[in-house]
Design a protein around this nucleic acid. Structure first.
Length: 958
RNA sequence: GCCGGGAUGGUGGAAUAGGUAGACACGCAAGACUUAAAAUCUUGUGAGAGAAAUCUCGUGCGGGUUCGAUUCCCGCUCCUGGUACCA
């Protein structure tokens, strides 16, 4: 406000404000803190700058303090910026982080960016803009938005997966995987050199290691005579990351490999081009080596059961047996995996996947034409298509027969696309009587159905688990379990099979034919892969003229001018594929600990101190991808001694997505007239999305609406009570639905503290819920009310030094207790309520005592840190409130002497009796039965039973 | 299909070792302050009946256990997330 020299009359007119003005001058002279109305914009800027300048949240290793590592899933910085749904989890973890600091923990709370990814590449293809530039801009925007919310992130530890100083270590980890194999006897990854030593000593027949199917056996002498080429080929069968032929969805028109999601009915989702299943050399990670440890490890984790269950299903352990069937008139055999070897006498046919290696050989001339056509058709359907189409039963007879080794019976061999090439052996022994799919198939093609477990076949097939085996030769009369054991004994005795554990999980493909990803530190000599030298890391992504594949279908890196590697032996081509999105995100939680280290991916001493993540917050959509890969890499890094923990995320919470809430206006068809919601049934209207930011409490801001789009300038309205009400619906938050709410707008209007409180107040963290800005006034009012507690009658800062009353202390300690309990349960929404109750009660008590307000401000500081810092400093503290201690709950303030007993008569609450808590059951009963209201309800009857629960309730049964 | 999660006022939600359903907010209504508005404050607000006291009903639906059920058990309906022929 600008101050003019006022005329006397004006002074009189503005007497109160002039008086205040003088008073402010006086206060300033006395160096008393001055206080105006709650100006969140000024306060929030001030404290955000203070935190940054003073490095308040910089986490340093401190062995004297207990540590707490609180982590958010880092975002992909998209071009659209943050919407109001993104920070939900970040706010929750920030509250926990700040709370833990108050409890004396040394807290590591970092943030960074998962900045390799498709959208930036897609944008680059369209515009020619280098993805690094787009990414940089997006990160800048994200960081700015995040900083506005006042998170206590330690920004000095920021990581970006697309930064060469970061991905050199992603490449380094890849190299370690390349240089390792999985030793089954020791159940851990070991150096490939140890394997070479074993080969030199005794060949590979005694090696117990995870490797490709059917490795060729060799002796030590043979190994030594192999040329390097052969040796390298063999080693590749053992390395934890390896090159292998994999079937991919190849789209010639796009010149690229597509994911299953991108293929619909054999055509690309984008563009609708033909997609074929093609075998391609791809890098893979032997995650299957860790299947059992990934499964068992789940038991040690504090995650929700649904997430653990999803991982268990994904790993998909099944215990069964593998056995071979001889083929009639053929020297080859068919290997099958089954979990129900007990039903072997019920097998009436074998079914092979269309991709099975033997199918073509098995076709007899009579069946050839029909079956070949079937195979061709099935091949070009993606696995997902085949699996989602359960109802259509299809298959073709090969004309060949297999022999059941248990009874010598001849059974037909069929080709069926319900059998998947990628699981087990790609061949199934079909038992129609006890497997639903086999049953449907057998019925469809009129094959025999033979029952071998006692029970009724009325409802078709039945699994008969635990049942009695019948019609089964040597197994007849046994219970399922015993039959399994006996059958496996038989197989092993005859050397035609063995007990086997099968996992559904497959090795993870590790290459993408894309530009914007980490280059693999690999070059090729005579077609075989070799690692570049460690001193040459990082292998920096080269510049290319276009971000598209080459004309002959090579990945974009093939466009780079000199994509080669020089060694003493010459210059060799480098790998042209890049790493997948999950590479960088599988270990970032380690890098945060020691983000600037140039010699190691993390210093062992530092990683030992911070250990595992104590609280990980993120969406459940990463349940099987990111969380499984991170666990895999952590276990590997543990095996090679690079880190000290086997599980990265001890505790995890999955926040629910925030959905959008769209608003609609209703236009009368063929006009520019809009009808308010309550009147739409009187007109023929069409509903149109309207920007939620020009609607408040479902009432349209008509002036803003008219300027929203040029065609609306002359719109007319049919109102209800002079107001225009909009319709609403919950949908995904997206630009096209005009329901995106930007945190920056909320912060500008209400402040970051209000945003933080409101996001928490919205409901339980895990729950899916729509964002609705209606209601934000409640928390905004709450903060203003809190502010007023610190103001005296003149509106200046003023707190009383008087000791607090019992009632005031009770209010405070009730809130301390609740806040602490809620934080332990991650129930943030109820904490906000309890703060409101507390401030309401203190306002009613007109309490402005330092003894109460100081601890209250600390309680609030994790939720609303800016206002808390400001009040804290007004209370005379020099230090940040971050360094304060969480108030100690004292239960003596909550001790009650009386309880208002609800009196129920026949289960219905009829009266209330305030009684001292020290009364006995008998005394309470006596008083209750003499009470006037109670007597009225008893209508002169005598009670059958009186239940008294001391401190709770009285129930009288008539 | 299978495996999770859920359903409570006009709205978001609260309350589970079984013990007063609807805390806290939003919205709405009335009032105070104000020349006026904003802001702020006060009161009311599950539904139905009644002038009122008060009564009846009420936590998706139908049963059950219990003195007492939003909470536990059985059977449904609907919504939602995951997964998809895994032999």
């Amino acid at each position: 406000m600008i101050f003019h020299f006022p005329l006397f009359s004006q002074i009189l007119n503005h007497f109160p404000s002039f008086f205040l003005f003088l008073q402010t001058i006086v206060k300033n002279l006395n160096h008393l803190p001055k206080m105006s109305e709650y100006n969140f914009q000024e306060i929030e800027k001030k404290w955000q700058a203070y935190w940054e300048q003073n490095q308040i949240f910089n986490a340093k290793v401190d062995p004297k303090k207990p540590k707490f590592y609180s982590l958010d899933m880092f975002p992909y910085p998209s071009g659209a910026g943050l919407h109001v749904g993104h920070p939900l989890g970040y706010i929750a973890s920030d509250i926990v982080s700040r709370f833990k600091r108050l409890q004396g923990y040394n807290v590591l709370h970092p943030m960074g960016y998962d900045s390799f990814g498709l959208p930036a590449e897609q944008y680059a293809i369209q515009t020619g803009q280098h993805p690094a530039i787009t990414t940089e801009e997006n990160i800048k925007r994200y960081t700015e938005q995040l900083k506005n919310i006042g998170f206590s992130f330690d920004w000095s530890k920021e990581v970006r997966t697309s930064d060469p100083s970061y991905y050199r270590w992603t490449q380094w980890i890849f190299m370690q995987l390349f240089n390792s194999y999985y030793d089954k006897s020791e159940d851990k990854a070991k150096s490939i050199h140890a394997l070479i030593e074993k080969f030199e000593e005794s060949g590979n027949s005694k090696v117990h290691a995870v490797c490709d199917e059917n490795p060729t056996l060799f002796s030590a002498d043979e190994w030594k005579t192999f040329p390097e080429r052969i040796q390298q080929e063999i080693l590749l069968q053992y390395r934890l990351t390896f090159l292998a032929e994999t079937t991919v969805n190849w789209c010639t028109a796009l010149g690229t490999v597509l994911s299953n999601d991108e293929v619909k009915d054999g055509f690309s989702e984008r563009g609708g081009h033909r997609v074929e299943r093609k075998k391609m050399m791809q890098w893979s990670m032997r995650i299957t080596a860790y299947a059992e440890r990934l499964l068992v490890g789940l038991d040690t984790l504090d995650w929700t059961d649904p997430i653990k269950e999803m991982q268990r299903n994904w790993i998909g352990k099944s215990i069964g047996a593998e056995m071979v069937f001889q083929i009639k008139g053929h020297d080859k055999e068919i290997k099958v995996f089954t979990t129900r070897v007990d039903t072997i006498f019920g097998v009436t046919y074998l079914a092979l996947a269309p991709e099975h290696e033997l199918v073509n050989e098995l076709l007899t001339p009579a069946e050839k034409e029909n079956a070949s056509a079937y195979i061709e058709g099935a091949k070009n359907r993606s696995e997902r298509d085949r699996m989602s189409d359960v109802k259509t039963i299809s298959g073709a007879f090969t004309g060949s027969y297999a022999i059941n080794p248990f009874n010598g019976e001849e059974i037909q061999i069929w080709i069926a696309d319900y059998v998947l090439a990628g699981y087990g052996t790609g061949a199934v022994m079909a038992v129609p009587a006890h497997d639903e799919r086999d049953f449907n198939f057998a019925k469809h093609f009129g094959l025999e159905i033979r029952q071998v477990i006692d029970g009724s076949m009325e409802n078709g097939s039945f699994p008969g688990k635990g049942g009695l085996i019948i019609n089964s030769g040597i197994l007849s009369g046994l219970w399922m379990k015993d039959a399994m054991v006996k059958a496996i004994e038989f197989l092993e005795e005859k050397k035609i099979g063995k007990g086997k554990i099968q996992y559904r999980m497959r090795d993870a493909i590790f290459t993408r034919q894309r530009y914007w990803g980490e280059p693999l530190p690999v070059y090729f000599k005579e077609g075989l892969p070799y690692l570049i030298e460690e001193k040459d890391l990082p292998l920096v992504l080269p510049e290319v003229d276009k971000y598209l594949p080459t004309e002959d279908g090579e990945p974009p890196l093939a466009r780079a001018a000199h994509w080669t590697y020089k060694t003493a032996e010459g210059e060799f081509p480098l790998e042209k594929s890049t790493m997948p999105g999950w590479a960088g995100s599988s270990w970032y939680f380690f890098r945060y600990m020691d983000a600037k280290n140039e010699n190691k991916f993390v210093d062992p001493e530092i990683s030992k101190y911070w250990g595992a993540v104590d609280l990980y917050i993120g969406g459940a959509e990463h349940a099987t991808g990111h969380l499984l890969y991170s666990r895999f890499w952590t276990k590997f890094l543990f095996d090679i001694g690079a880190v000290g923990i086997e599980e990265p995320f001890q505790k995890m919470i999955n926040q629910g997505m925030i959905q959008g809430r769209s608003n609609f206006v209703y236009r009368i068809k063929g006009s520019n007239t809009y009808v308010s919601l309550g009147l739409i049934d009187q007109y023929e209207t069409s509903s149109i999305h309207v920007d939620v930011n020009i609607v408040h409490n479902d009432q349209l801001d008509i002036e803003k609406f008219k300027t929203w789009r040029p065609d609306l300038a002359d719109a007319t309205f049919i109102l209800e009570d002079g107001r225009y009400f909009c319709g609403a619906e919950v949908e995904k938050m997206s630009k096209s639905k005009y329901n995106v709410v930007n945190p920056d707008d909320i912060i500008e209007r209400y402040g970051a503290d209000t945003l933080r409180l409101y996001e928490m107040f919205l409901g339980p963290l895990e729950q899916f819920k729509p964002w609705n800005t209606n209601g934000i006034d409640g928390v905004s009012k709450f903060l203003k009310k809190l502010w007023r507690l610190f103001q005296d009658k003149q509106g200046d800062f003023g707190v009383s030094e008087e000791p607090a009353t019992q009632e005031e202390l009770k209010t405070l300690h009730k809130t301390i207790k609740k806040t602490q309990e809620d934080l332990d349960n991650y129930s943030f929404n109820t904490s906000v309520s309890s703060f409101m109750i507390c401030v309401n009660e203190l306002s009613a008590l007109k309490c402005n005592k330092r003894e109460i307000l100081t601890p209250l401000v600390i309680l609030l500081s994790p939720y609303a840190p800016h206002i808390a810092e400001e009040l804290w400093s007004l209370l005379g503290h020099e230090n940040s409130i971050t360094h304060a201690s969480f108030p100690v709950f004292q239960k003596e303030f909550l001790v009650e002497n009386n309880h208002e007993y609800p009196v129920s008569i026949n289960g219905k609450m009829r009266a209330k009796l305030p009684l001292p808590l020290n009364l006995s059951k008998e005394q309470i009963e006596k008083i209750a039965l003499e009470n006037e209201t109670v007597l009225k309800w008893m209508e002169g009857k005598s009670p059958k039973k009186v239940i008294v629960v001391v401190g709770k309730i009285i129930n009288i049964v008539l």
